[in-house]
Design a protein around this nucleic acid. Structure first.
Length: 546
RNA sequence: GGCCUGUUGGUCAAGUGGUUAAGAUGCCACCCUCUCAAGGUGGAGUCACGAGUUCAAUUCUCGUACAGGCUACCA
């Protein structure tokens, strides 16, 4: 019996590997063009780190007019959830992560599919057969129990753990012995027959991490599991070869699998792609850094940002600064340019992990929101409120013009207000502008607290000096006049020079008006607020104070 | 345990065999100002440690410590 026959007995396939090699020809692309992918398990959950990796991969491909495709890695059924793929696609689309090729909401797109691993069983088996025929792979009949025993023994003797050398028992089975076991109904998997030597090192260059030396792989790793599906390692090699991936961009937890992956590509006769291993986004936990964890850290889920009302765009800008820290500087120097013009560089990506910086995200978000038009802020706040604060949403809908005008205070100008960091905070900032919400528990009186004095200020100012039709300068001049009439300094300078000559300053005076109308000592421009409230509502609020 | 990777202000980081070691963010102060938010100016704060190479080391080499990742028929 020759090994080819042996391989046929072990794995049944419709086609052989040559068929598939021909089916997926090399892409006719320039050398510098990047073909890459995002390859999640269909868990339906998009981790911030995954979004980060997907963003980098997409941008790197786009920059070279390359190809970015989506492949679903569902070889482990335990990780799949219903509708998980669609969730991932729509979640990513919300962050402008779209694909040129691969799995879509309406099935596969592109000539290198299927793009879902569970639909590629025949392909993996065809290539596994090739390895078996070339004596580079073999069936293994070891039980989970005996593997476990080996591991315990290895641990006890302080040996390296794994299926290699002496412990790789099934690698020495003859074809006849193997077939006999199969006829007896013994279960088997397929393992790689590694000729690597752990004491030999080979040089490897990662696009991000740079040059390094790694030991050769000497483990007979599993390539086909007992369910007939490939392991990640084997599927990676076969898929990224047949899909003609030029750059494998993924998290750096894979870095230590490089010896296995390089070996797999070589044994299969494939050209090894370039690798870019992205360092993780970490978080501080009890004084140590660790990767953002889906279970422990709410920030790990992209839904977190949605809930808070942090714009997706701001999250992306933040991720881009993490990816290439010079991006921020570039943005400040090129305010008129589209951020897509910035060129990402593997070499500038962080090599260690980056701590998730909430302050920085907020700052970026605040700056981003400040560049939006009032109507955009209105739309985005409403979108948020529709999901997370229905009452507020109905107010926004009821008073659309009015609300937009509120958002327009000190906006749409050279140096716009920067007070909104996330839409979840908007209500806290402007609630007092809505009569339905205006029900102050306390007034934040500052210097002037005497009720009589307050009453006097309001009476004189509103009845004698306030005109609804005044422009801003006149309005302020009139307020100053009222202040002076009642013994307050009209100019801050005057007051600072001789504080004893006055009851207070124009600031103290205006604060009385501000607090009376809003209950808050800190608000945006008082003139705008008074204009928006209108005299009638102002008088009503004043009545409540007096 | 083994293998890999990393360590520059609180955080994100640029950078170099000789620099006053960028910048951002955060913090503090002051200025501006009707209060905020901004904006402006200034300030505090850093090359993990120990050897070696060198006239000179944050930078190169080795070691130590610490941190992270991997070490599955999971990805």
């Amino acid at each position: 019996m020759d090994r080819k026959e042996f391989a046929d007995r072990l794995l049944k396939t419709e086609h052989d590997f040559e068929y598939y090699e021909n089916l997926y020809p090399e892409r006719d692309l320039d050398d510098k063009v990047i073909v890459t992918r995002y390859a999640p398990s269909p868990t339906g959950f998009v981790h911030l780190g995954a979004l980060y990796a997907a963003f980098i991969a997409r941008k790197m491909a786009k920059q070279t007019n390359g190809v970015f495709f989506l492949r679903i890695e569902d070889t482990d059924q335990k990780r799949s959830i219903e509708d998980g793929v669609n969730k991932i696609i729509t979640d990513l689309a919300n962050f402008d992560i779209t694909f040129d090729e691969g799995v879509t909401l309406d099935g596969d797109k592109g000539n290198y599919g299927p793009y879902t691993q569970s639909e590629r069983g025949d392909i993996y088996k065809a290539f596994a057969k090739k390895l078996i025929a070339e004596d580079k792979a073999y069936p293994c009949f070891c039980s989970q129990e005996s593997l476990q025993e080996d591991r315990e023994r290895q641990e006890k003797h302080k040996e390296r753990i794994g299926y290699y050398g002496y412990y790789a028992r099934c690698r020495n089975l003859s074809m006849e012995e193997a077939l006999e076991k199969i006829e007896n109904g013994e279960k088997y998997i397929i393992r790689l027959k590694s000729k690597g030597n752990f004491n030999h090192r080979f040089k490897f260059k990662d696009e991000i991490k740079g040059k390094m030396e790694l030991p050769e792989n000497d483990q007979d790793i599993v390539i086909i599991k007992s369910d007939g599906l490939p392991t990640y390692h084997f599927a990676h090699a076969v898929d990224d070869h047949l899909m003609r991936t030029t750059h494998v961009i993924r998290g750096d937890e894979w870095l230590s699998s490089i010896p296995v992956h390089v070996q797999l590509f070589e044994y299969l006769g494939f050209k090894v792609p370039k690798y870019a291993h992205i360092s993780p986004i970490t978080i501080e936990d009890n004084g140590t850094k660790r990767k953002l964890s889906k279970r422990k850290d709410p920030e790990a889920a992209i839904s977190y940002y949605h809930e808070k009302g942090i714009p997706n765009k701001a999250v992306m800008l933040y991720l881009e600064t993490v990816a290439n820290s010079n991006f921020e500087m570039w943005m400040n120097q090129n305010k008129d340019k589209d951020v897509d013009e910035f060129v990402l560089d593997f070499k500038k990506m962080p090599v260690g992990g980056s701590l998730f910086d909430h302050d920085k995200l907020m700052n970026i978000s605040k700056n981003y929101i400040s560049t939006l038009k009032a109507s955009e802020v209105y739309d985005m706040t409403l979108d948020w409120a529709l999901v997370y604060d229905k009452d507020f949403a109905s107010l926004l809908e009821k008073y659309k013009e009015y609300s937009t005008a509120i958002f327009n205070i000190e906006r749409e100008q050279k140096k716009p207000r920067k007070d909104i960091g996330y839409f979840g905070d908007v209500k806290n900032q402007i609630w007092y502008m809505y009569d339905e919400l205006f029900d102050p528990k306390e007034y934040e009186w500052q210097k002037v607290t005497d009720k009589k004095e307050i009453r006097n200020i309001l009476d004189v100012y509103l009845n004698k000096y306030y005109n609804e039709t005044d422009d801003k300068n006149t309005w302020f001049d009139n307020m100053k006049k009222a202040a002076v009439e009642l013994g307050y300094a009209g100019e801050m300078r005057e007051y600072k020079e001789n504080p004893d000559n006055f009851k207070g300053s124009i600031a103290d005076f205006s604060t009385v008006v501000r607090v009376s109308l809003t209950s808050k000592s800190n608000t945006p421009d008082l003139y705008e607020i008074m204009r928006l409230l209108g005299k009638e509502r102002m008088m009503e609020r004043v009545k409540a104070v007096i």
